[in-house]
C-alpha cells in the first residue's frame, strides 16, 4: 500500500497527522465558538477581549430561545420538510422507475429538462409563485412551502433514483411480470427494496435542501407563525442589538440533532453522498 511504514516518534509526528490536526482545528474552531457563546450571558458575549470559555455559564439562552418563538420555527421546519420529503420520494420512485425502465418516448429531453430545473435559481420564479399562491390564498401557510419544495427537489430525486434503478437486475422485474404483478406492485414490492440506499440518498438530499432553504421561505411565509428556522434565525434581533446568545442557543439546538444523526449514520450518509459521485 501507499502509506509508508513510519517508526518511533514519526508514527505520531508526521505530515499526515499534522495536516489532519490543522483540518480538525480549522473545522472545529467556529463550532467551538458557537457552542461556548451559547452558554455565555450577554455581557460576556460582547466582552472585549472575548473569553475562550464562559466565566459564568448559563442555560438562560436556551430557555430564551424556546420561549421566543424558536419552538414554533422548529415545528414549522420539521413539518414542512418531512412532508415535502415524503411526497418527493413517492413521486420520484415512480418517475425514476419509468425513466430507467420503460421505453417511453422523449426520455432524453425530459431528463435534460429535469437537470436544468434542478439548478434553476429560485429567484427566477419567486414573483410568479408568490402571485399564484396569493391568488390561491396559500401564502403564509404550510402548503405555501411544501408545494414549491416538492417541485424544486423532485428533479434531482428522480435523477438519483433513476440511476439506482438502472443497476437493479432486469430479471427480477421480468419474473414479477410473469407472475402477473401489476406495474405499481412491481415497483413497490420488487424494485423498491432494491433501491433502498437510493431512497436514503434522495431523502437526505431533499430533506437537507428544504431544511436550509431560505429565499422562498422568507418571501412566502414571512409571518411570524409560519416562519421556518432559517427565516426565524435571519430575522432575529432588534435595531440595537442582535441577541447572539439566544441565537446561538437556537443554532446549537438545531445543529446538534443533525450532527448526532450524521455521527450515528456517518457510514451510510457518506456512502450515500458519494455513491453517485463515484459510480456515475
Amino acid at each position: 500500500m501507499r502509506t509508508r511504514e513510519r517508526r518511533g516518534w514519526r508514527r505520531v509526528v508526521n505530515p499526515v497527522n499534522g495536516g489532519a490536526l490543522v483540518m480538525v482545528v480549522l473545522t472545529a474552531m467556529p463550532l467551538y465558538w458557537l457552542v461556548m457563546n451559547s452558554f455565555k450571558p450577554p455581557e460576556e458575549i460582547s466582552a472585549v477581549p472575548p473569553g475562550a470559555v464562559p466565566k459564568a455559564p448559563t442555560g438562560q439562552n436556551y430557555g430564551d430561545a424556546f420561549a421566543g418563538g424558536f419552538a414554533t420555527y422548529m415545528l414549522n421546519s420539521v413539518l414542512v420538510c418531512a412532508v415535502a420529503t415524503v411526497i418527493v420520494l413517492s413521486l420520484a420512485t415512480f418517475a425514476g422507475y419509468a425513466l430507467a425502465r420503460t421505453p417511453m418516448r422523449g426520455r432524453g429531453p425530459v431528463m435534460v429538462a429535469l437537470l436544468i430545473i434542478s439548478v434553476y435559481p429560485a429567484i427566477a420564479v419567486l414573483v410568479p409563485l408568490y402571485l399564484m399562491q396569493r391568488q390561491l390564498g396559500l401564502l403564509n401557510s404550510y402548503p405555501a412551502l411544501i408545494i414549491p419544495y416538492v417541485a424544486f427537489n423532485l428533479p434531482f430525486a428522480i435523477w438519483i433514483l433513476r440511476n439506482y434503478m438502472l443497476s437493479v437486475p432486469r430479471g427480477l422485474e421480468d419474473a414479477a411480470s410473469i407472475d402477473g404483478c401489476s406495474p405499481v406492485r412491481t415497483v413497490l414490492q420488487v424494485i423498491l427494496p432494491q433501491v433502498r440506499p437510493g431512497l436514503f440518498t434522495a431523502g437526505v438530499f431533499t430533506f437537507t435542501a428544504t431544511w436550509m432553504e431560505f429565499l422562498m421561505a422568507l418571501t412566502f411565509n414571512s409571518q411570524e407563525g409560519f416562519r421556518t428556522i432559517p427565516v426565524g434565525m435571519a430575522l432575529f434581533g432588534t435595531v440595537f442589538e442582535v441577541p447572539y446568545g439566544t441565537l446561538f442557543a437556537a443554532a446549537v439546538a438545531v445543529t446538534a440533532p443533525i450532527a448526532i444523526l450524521a455521527l450515528v449514520f456517518r457510514r451510510s450518509v457518506v456512502a450515500g453522498l458519494t455513491a453517485g459521485a463515484v459510480k456515475g
Binding site: 408568490y130 401564502l139 403564509n140 414571512s222 430575522l235 432575529f236 435595531v239
Partner: peptide
Amino acid sequence: LVDVPPTTDVRRTTLTTQIASGATS
C-alpha cells in the same frame, strides 16, 4: 407588540411580502 428585524431594509421587505400577501397582521 411585534418586534421587527434589525435593519430598515429587511424590515421593509418583510412588511411588503407580508402585506402584499393579503395578511391581516
